[in-house]
Write a protein that binds this DNA or RNA. Sequence first.
DNA 1: GATGAATGAGCGTTCATTCAT
DNA 2: TATGAATGAACGCTCATTCAT
Lengths: 210, 210, 210, 210
Amino acid sequence: MAKFRRMKDSRHGLIMEAALKVFAEQGLVGAGIADIARTANISTGTFYLYFQNKEDLVIQLLDESVRVLRRTQAKAIESEGPPLLRFEHAGRAFFREFCGDRREMLILFLRDSVGVSHLVEEKRKAVFQLMIDDITGAIIRITGGKGRVARRKAQVMAVSIFGMMERVAYHYYIWQMGSKDLRKVEDEALVFIRDGLGSVMPKGGRRAPA
Amino acid sequence: MAKFRRMKDSRHGLIMEAALKVFAEQGLVGAGIADIARTANISTGTFYLYFQNKEDLVIQLLDESVRVLRRTQAKAIESEGPPLLRFEHAGRAFFREFCGDRREMLILFLRDSVGVSHLVEEKRKAVFQLMIDDITGAIIRITGGKGRVARRKAQVMAVSIFGMMERVAYHYYIWQMGSKDLRKVEDEALVFIRDGLGSVMPKGGRRAPA
Amino acid sequence: MAKFRRMKDSRHGLIMEAALKVFAEQGLVGAGIADIARTANISTGTFYLYFQNKEDLVIQLLDESVRVLRRTQAKAIESEGPPLLRFEHAGRAFFREFCGDRREMLILFLRDSVGVSHLVEEKRKAVFQLMIDDITGAIIRITGGKGRVARRKAQVMAVSIFGMMERVAYHYYIWQMGSKDLRKVEDEALVFIRDGLGSVMPKGGRRAPA
Amino acid sequence: MAKFRRMKDSRHGLIMEAALKVFAEQGLVGAGIADIARTANISTGTFYLYFQNKEDLVIQLLDESVRVLRRTQAKAIESEGPPLLRFEHAGRAFFREFCGDRREMLILFLRDSVGVSHLVEEKRKAVFQLMIDDITGAIIRITGGKGRVARRKAQVMAVSIFGMMERVAYHYYIWQMGSKDLRKVEDEALVFIRDGLGSVMPKGGRRAPA
DNA sequence: GATGAATGAGCGTTCATTCAT
DNA sequence: TATGAATGAACGCTCATTCAT
C-alpha cells in the first residue's frame, strides 16, 4: 500500500521517476534504457534488476500513474456535498493534482504509452476500462438511473467525459495551446460536462453555471 | 485537391493505402518500410522516391486523413436545417464515414501517430488546431456568442467535444469494447454534446433527444 | 547441386568461408558476428541477409561440412577393388581430403559445434546418424552379415570406427600432438580398424598388416 | 587424495556437484554462475571464494572427472587374470562405472568442455594425453612391443581405442540413440577392440568373440 | 567467511536509408 | 524511374565478476 507513496525511497521508484522524466523529454521511442539508467544514476544492468524489460517498465509506470490518478479521484469523490458537486471536485482534482502536479505521468498516460506494442495496448485497455467503470458508477449514483439502457447511457457518458478530460489535458497541459488561464479552461470544461449530464438528471437538478 | 480523390490512382497514393493497412495491423513501430513496400508491391528503394522518410510518410498520412475527415465534416455541416442539427450531422458523419468507413485512418490518427517524434507531434498539434478551429467556428455560429470570453468558452467546448468523439471512437471502434450497438452509442454521445452545448445556447434551443 | 562447389563464388559461401576461418581461430563462442563480417569484408547487416542468426550459420556450416565429407567418402568408396580395400580408401580420404585439406571444417565439426545449443546438438545428432548409417551399410556390404543382431553389431562397429577416426583426427590434426608422421599414423589406425573388422569377416579375409 | 573422496563433504565439492548437474541440464554456455549458485544453495559471491572464475571451475571439474575415471580404470586394471582380460575389464568399468554412474561427468568431459576457451582446451589436451598414456602403457604391457615404432603404433592404437569408447559413450549414453541394450553394445565394442589389438599381439592371443 | 546488489563491456540483432545498376 | 543488396549506427539485453556490508 505504501509501496510507492514516495517513489524515490526505493531504487525501483527512483528508476520509475527517472524514466518518466526521460520519456516526457525524449518520448518513449526516443529514450533508450541507457538514457534512463544515466538519469537514475545507475548502470544498464541494474535497470534489469528491477524490470524485466522496457515493456515491463512502461506497464508498471502505467499502473503507477493510474494508481496515483485514482487516488486523487477517490479523495475528491469522498468530499462533502451533493453528488454532482463531488463529481465536479473529482474533475478539478484531475486537472490540478494530476495534470498539473504529475505532468510526466499525464504525458506517459496520454502520449507515450499509445500504440507502442500489443502488450502495452492491452494494459491501456484494462486501465481505461477501470477508469470508465469508476466514472460510470459515479454517474449512476448521481442520476439514479436503473436498467441496462441507463447503464449503457451512463457508460457512453463516462467514455465521453473521460475523452473530454483527456483532450483538454493534452491540449492545455501537454501542448499548452490556447488559453493559458487553466483555471478558466477547467471551469468551462466542467460546466460543459455538468450540462451534458443534464439529460439524465432525475429532475430539475440542473443549475446555471457558477 | 484532386490529388488524392482516389489514392489508388497514383503510386504515391498506393503506398499510402498500403501503409495505412500495415500500420493498422502491426502498429507504426512494428511496421517496417519493407512491410509497406511489400504490401504496395514495390521495392524499398521506390518508397524513397515518393517519401523523404518514414516520418514524412506519417505526416502525409496524417494530412490526408485530416483532409478526408474535414471533407466529411464540411459536407455534413453544409446540409439543410438549423445549425444545431447540422452540427449533429457532422457528429454522425464522423462516426459513420470516418470511424466506420476509414477505420485505418482513424487508427493512424488516434493511435499510431501519437508520441512518435517531435516532428510528427508538431504536425498533430497543427492538425488538431485545425479541427478545433472548425468546431469552434461552428459553435460560435450556433450559439451566436461574441467577445473573447465567448470565444474561449467556445474553444474549450470544441476541445471537449473533439476529445469526446475521439475517445468514443477509440473505445467503441478501435478497441471495440462495451456496447456493440454503435448506432445507440453514437446517439447518446451526440445527446450528451447537445446538452453540454445548452449552457451557451441563446434561448430554449434545447429539445428532447430524438 | 553445384550450390557450394566453390563456396567463394557466392556471397553466402564467402561468409561461410570467413566464418570457418574465424571459428577455427577464435572458437565459436569467442567469435562474434562482427569478426566474421570483418573477415568476409561485409557489414554485420549483410550477414543477416544470408543467415537468420548465428545458430543458423553454424547449422549450415555443419551441413556443408558433412556434404563435403560425404562427397570424399562416396568418391573413395566407388573406387575399384575389393570391398575392404575400398573401405580403407574411404578412411584415407577422410584423413587426407577432409582433415588435411579442410582442416577448418574438421575443427567446426569436432570442436566448435559441440555442446553449443539444443538446436545445434540436434543437428549434430542427425548428421552423426547419417555418417554412422553410411558406415554401417558399408560394413554390412563387406561382411555380408544378415539379421538384426548382425545389424546391431555392424552399427556398434560403425560408431566405434567413426569415433576412432574422430579422435585420431582431433589428436593428430587439430591438436597436432604425438607423431608428426601423419601417413604412418593413418596407416596404423586403418590397420587397427581392419583387424577389428576381422571378427565379423566371412572367412579368411584378414591379412597381415601391410 | 581424500579431498574429493566425497565431494559433498566440502563446500567446494558441493559447488562442483551442483555445477555438473546444471551443466548437464543446460549446457555450459546455457548455465550461468547464478544457476550454479542457486543449485548449490549459495550466493554468487561465495562461488568466487572457491573458484577464480567459470573457467577455473570447468578446469577443476575436468580434473576431478579424470581423477574419477582413472580411479575406476586403475582398479579394473589391477584385477586378476591375463593382461588382455584386465584390459577388457577396464573397458567395462569405463562404460558401467563412468558412463553409467557418473553420467554428468561424462557429459562435461565429452560435450560441455569442448571448444570452450583456449585455457580449457589446453587442459583437455593435457588430460587426454594422460589417458592416452595410460592406455598406451597398457597396450605395450599386453603386446610386449619394444622400440619407437612399437611405441608409436601403441599410441595410435590408444588414441583409436579412446576415440571409440568416447563415441560409443556419446552415442549410446549421452544421446541414447540406437540399441538400448547397453550390455550388448559394450560387448561388441570391446570385441572390436580386442580384434583390433590382434595385429600387434605376440602370438595366437586372439580368440573368437564371446 | 558470506552475501547479493551493482556493474558495464560486449553481444546479437534490427531497420531506416542509400546507391550502383 | 525502379530496384534491392548493402550498410552501420543504435538498441535491448545478458552475465561473469566485484565489493561494500
